[in-house]
């Protein structure tokens, strides 16, 4: 029963960390748009937090370049398990139009494992919300290895793709 409650709560309380790798800000505006009364993602318990230590979901927009790949790795490393990475927009998916640029590494999955890809240039808010909800499917499938507060958390990260 505890397991079900936990899973339910994970799905209903995903906190987002939004990191702009080197986006043109198009996708960023759409991410922020999700917070507005029109889309109101807080309906789903989603909160935009500024801090990897608090976050469950990492939203990345823009292509990764050599300067910020370390930052992306750092942020990812600081997020406690279980966590989901969602790449938003063409650039985050593959590098987009910047793919061949000398300073660009490529899509987010060149650096960290991505769970959900949300295409679009820019990705629409509806698509972003849909992507987040898809990412939550991962939490539903997780087995809960909770061994008491303060204990060691061992997690089988099943869905890394």
């Amino acid at each position: 029963m505890f397991e079900q409650i936990t899973r339910g709560s994970r799905v209903k309380s995903p906190w987002l960390l939004h990191y702009d790798c080197s986006s043109c800000n198009g996708c960023d505006i759409e991410v922020i748009a999700c917070l507005t009364p029109v889309y109101d993602i807080e309906r789903f318990g989603i909160i935009n937090v500024g801090n990897p230590l608090h976050a469950d979901i990492l939203l990345v927009t823009g292509a990764v370049n050599h300067r910020n790949r370390k930052v992306l790795e750092n942020l990812y490393e600081q997020m406690p398990h279980p966590r989901v990475v969602i790449a938003i927009g063409s650039c985050a998916l593959s590098g987009g139009v910047f793919r061949e640029a000398y300073n660009v590494v490529g899509g987010v999955d060149k650096v960290i494992a991505v769970d959900v890809y949300v295409p679009g240039c820019a990705a629409k808010p509806e698509a972003i919300i849909d992507g987040v909800l898809l990412g939550l499917e991962k939490f539903k499938k997780l087995s809960n290895n909770w061994r008491g507060v303060g204990g060691i958390f061992r997690e089988a990260e099943t869905n890394e793709s």
């Binding site: 936990t6 339910g8 309380s13 318990g45 469950d56 406690p80 507060v149």
Partner: peptide, 27 residues
């Protein structure tokens, strides 16, 4: 949320948040 013309989360949302946090990896 209503004051900001939004719908807002369900009333039990804080409990979801706390249960989720309790079950996150302790770092």
């Amino acid at each position: 949320a209503r004051l900001q013309s939004r719908v807002g989360p369900p009333v039990v949302q804080p409990f979801h948040d706390v249960i989720k946090l309790l079950n996150k990896e302790p770092v």
